[in-house]
Design a protein around this nucleic acid. Sequence first.
DNA 1: CATAAAAAAGTCCATCCGTAAGGTTTTTTT
DNA 2: AAAAAAACCTTACGGATGGACTTTTTTATG
Lengths: 205, 205
Amino acid sequence: MKSEHVNEITLGPQQEKSKRARNAIIDATIDSLVEVGYAETSLVRVAKAAGFSKGAIQHHFPSKEDLIAQTVDKLISRTISPPPASRRARTVEEALLRAWKTFVDTPAYRALLEILNAARTDKKLKKRIGKDLIAWRDRMDLQSLENYEAVSGDDEDVVMLLNMNRSFMRGLLMQEQYGFSEETATRYLRKWVEMISPLLRLKEK
Amino acid sequence: MKSEHVNEITLGPQQEKSKRARNAIIDATIDSLVEVGYAETSLVRVAKAAGFSKGAIQHHFPSKEDLIAQTVDKLISRTISPPPASRRARTVEEALLRAWKTFVDTPAYRALLEILNAARTDKKLKKRIGKDLIAWRDRMDLQSLENYEAVSGDDEDVVMLLNMNRSFMRGLLMQEQYGFSEETATRYLRKWVEMISPLLRLKEK
DNA sequence: CATAAAAAAGTCCATCCGTAAGGTTTTTTT
DNA sequence: AAAAAAACCTTACGGATGGACTTTTTTATG
């Protein structure tokens, strides 16, 4: 029976401050996730990075799980939000390469991967963020259908191809972290895009 | 000045015992990595699983880093060792699908991924196992060249395609852990193999 | 100035890795 | 064959850190 948001219309100045603090803390969490990974992302570290005390963090986020869950929210919304409203891509190649640069090869995505990996074995966390992840995936599939169509095949193929694309990019990102250089990764990415783009078409809007 | 005993042929009963113990500990480590991930893989947990006390582990492995490093050794050698000497694959499709089942979609590979991901942010560990990983990659590339040739293109293309294959499979494995079902993963895998196999040819031996 | 939220400071308990001190069994030495 | 050394393993403890929780101080607001 949580009636959390009562005053959504007028945020008192104090709530404003609180909101800013929470944002700062979440941002510091994201940074920490990218820098030192999930395991090392402790409350004290986040606190120091955000310029607060540990107590302040536990004031805003009752448990670490809460902090992570809200961080996931922010990360997901960031990954979903439409591209920087720049001009639309003209070709499938361009769209996919841009997706790599804009969404995948970013701190936000790396942070999200950190959490996802941690959630694999942390059942409580997994249960907590599970719904969001499913919603995220559904949203992604929907976006796929909005933007692409299959040259030969149905909607299911579109979803499949775009999911394959995400798998590939994810694997590439991981491999890039240890092993080969960024140029090599780019080469592989181009080859992949070259292979898959003939199967897709951009939908006119 | 090293006057090492050339008594490697006959292992004393104590060395035998020691060897068995070390193997059991490493195996328990691998199991733990798969079950609960790197962060939760503590020495006590490994000890209990292996049926020893924590002290025993630290007797055989001076530090946790040592334990992990030796585990990596074992995992890598397992990932490299030739397929179960069964009949050779007849087609590229078959070879790639078999590689998935034999090498990638296995506990060993998952355990290795767990360590790799942890090493990303653990500099000491990264430094420790870095060489092995590079050697591993080189070995993989070599194996690629031994088994495949490009339908059109040179050796570099072979290495690229097989590395792309590994990226894809890695990404698929990760995504399989949260998100979609195994059947879906299999469908994606088949599609991928279907896309890439026309570019490769099996080398006759 | 009074009150409530925000933030800090400090306590508590669990767990982690590592080390040290024994005890027992095997191996080596004398 | 006895003594010494080494290897194996257990139990116990230390220092450090993590997260949850509690209490105190500060700050903002009406």
